[in-house]
């Protein structure tokens, strides 16, 4: 095999042809609609909903609404917190899954995926029942004296965070597990052998070892978290509102499409930042060890 750069052109052309259908699909059903949203944010609002003729910056000017910075900030910190907790829990679970024997692993993976068999909305509603002021969870906790008589579990940021972690945890576990499965656990023996406690070995060797999985987990949790709508809507109340709820309000209640479009564009920009970061990170990682694919770690 020669230098891949010098490969003849026909192969590259074939590649283009095989990419075309998916590229076309993305263009028609993703790129164009996204662009339409961005364009819509520069239109004036129509008097009876929808949008009007001509161009306007009003929707963007409205972004300065005093309630927005708090909501954007809440959206970002709740999402980041949910991501940190999910990855934090996903790491030990991924570790156990990677170490488990075939049978246990299959069972554990099934348990991770089982919640998906129930409708998402129902599951979030179930949390509402659990956390409800007269729900048995709160009653029990109050009865045990763990929380005060006046503490509410529902309709606050804590409830949103809790349910987000619950909902997105599988998206952190699965990519970390995928990395852990390929991880060479002899490396942990080596770390222990060289004087690292099991906890240090975990942090210094296992976590970097599943770095790609962690990166994927961050992207898989952070992005849907930033766009959360159902969770804050059901368990958040006014105190737990996120950008997603505002967009919904603008579309369904105010019928102010340009305003909703501007909010959506703003959210998209916030969302793109971690993706760009992850992309750059992966590029940088794959440059020095580009030859990894062929022969990674030595096999025993």
């Amino acid at each position: 095999m020669g230098n891949p750069r010098r490969q003849p052109n026909p192969e590259r052309r074939n590649e283009w042809w095989t990419t075309l259908p998916s590229a076309g699909w993305l263009l028609v059903f993703f790129a164009v609609p996204t662009l339409l949203i961005v364009v819509m944010s520069f239109k004036p609002a129509g008097p009876y909903g929808g949008f009007g003729e001509g161009w306007s910056l009003k929707a963007w000017a409205d972004m300065a609404h005093p309630s927005y910075p708090a909501i954007v900030w809440r959206t970002v910190w709740l999402s980041v917190a949910a991501t940190i907790v999910c990855v934090g829990l996903g790491l030990p679970v991924g570790f156990l899954l990677g170490r488990a024997d075939e049978k246990t692993r299959a069972l554990l993976l099934l348990l991770v995926v089982v919640p998906f068999w129930t409708n998402f909305l129902i599951r979030v509603y179930a949390w509402k029942v659990l956390l409800h002021p007269s729900g048995y969870l709160r009653e029990t906790l109050v009865g045990l004296g763990i929380i005060g008589e006046n503490t509410l579990l529902l309709y606050n940021e804590g409830a949103v965070l809790l349910v987000m972690v619950y909902a997105y945890l599988p998206f952190a576990i699965l990519p970390i597990y995928a990395s852990a499965e390929k991880f060479d656990f002899a490396l942990l023996d080596a770390a222990r052998d060289l004087g690292a406690s099991s906890i240090r070995a975990f942090w210094l060797v296992f976590v970097p070892g599943v770095g790609r999985g962690v990166l994927a987990a961050v992207v898989m949790v952070l992005i849907p978290a930033l766009g959360s709508y159902i969770i804050p809507d059901i368990v958040g109340g006014p105190a737990g509102e996120m950008v997603g709820n505002k967009i919904a309000q603008r579309v369904f209640i105010d019928r102010n499409w340009p305003h909703a479009a501007a909010l959506a564009t703003l959210l998209m920009i916030v969302t793109l930042l971690p993706v760009i970061f992850a992309f750059v990170q992966q590029k940088r990682e794959s440059v020095p060890d580009g030859s990894r694919k062929g022969g990674g770690k030595a096999t025993a």
Partner: peptide
């Protein structure tokens, strides 16, 4: 535990830390 023993191992697969 292994980390407190005055011995060190050369592993068959070397087990060098790839990162």
């Amino acid at each position: 535990p292994p980390e407190r023993r005055p011995v060190n191992t050369v592993f068959q697969s070397y087990a060098l830390f790839p990162h």
